[in-house]
């Protein structure tokens, strides 16, 4: 009984000292909007639609991403490319490309499904909004700006140069 009492009472200052020691530690808080947590390079944040170096869009409107999406969050509507109005290599491009960020579960299956590596989930961006409508990201919001020096789409292109949507050996860029 007495041993137990002594054992308990002598532990109390240890507990208080441990708490007080924390006072002299640097706080672990991350001041979110100003500071952000270091994030894995492979973190699956929001989607980006990529372009080739010559400014053409990688997306060919095949809708395989929409088919792969387990949350049914992607809607793609394709249209025909012409040499006068060319958006992407090959026959077709995505006229409409919408992702409902409220449905998306950020699983990355769209990335896996994409035959041209057009859609990529990149870190450090979190879709936020005040209304449901604003959470449907349309193509303009998803598409990256053309690389420096390259023209935007649609482009006028010489006949025969972009006949194939996918090169015989697709370049693996990532």
């Amino acid at each position: 009984m007495m041993d137990k009492f002594v054992a308990v009472v002598t532990k109390i200052p240890v507990g208080f000292a441990t708490v007080l020691k924390t006072f002299f530690r640097k706080p672990v808080t991350i001041q979110y909007p100003e500071q952000t947590k270091p994030m894995s390079a492979r973190f699956r944040g929001r989607h980006h639609l990529k372009r080739y170096d010559d400014g053409l869009e990688k997306c060919i409107g095949c809708a395989l991403c929409a088919a792969a999406c387990p949350a049914d969050a992607i809607y793609v509507e394709a249209a025909e490319n012409t040499n006068e109005q060319r958006y992407s290599p090959g026959e077709r491009y995505a006229k409409t490309y919408e992702i409902n960020m409220l449905r998306c579960i950020f699983c990355g299956y769209c990335e896996d499904a994409c035959p041209t590596n057009a859609i990529v989930l990149e870190p450090m961006e979190f879709p936020t909004g005040y209304t449901r409508d604003s959470m449907i990201y349309v193509k303009d919001m998803l598409l990256e700006a053309p690389p420096p020096g390259a023209p935007a789409t649609p482009q006028q292109t010489p006949p025969g140069k972009y006949d194939r949507a996918i090169l015989p050996f697709p370049p693996i860029t990532d």
């Binding site: 007080l20 924390t22 006072f23 530690r25 706080p27 808080t29």
Partner: peptide
Amino acid sequence: KFISRLQARI
């Protein structure tokens, strides 16, 4: 403030 610092918060 004080309890935050005792818990390594700000």
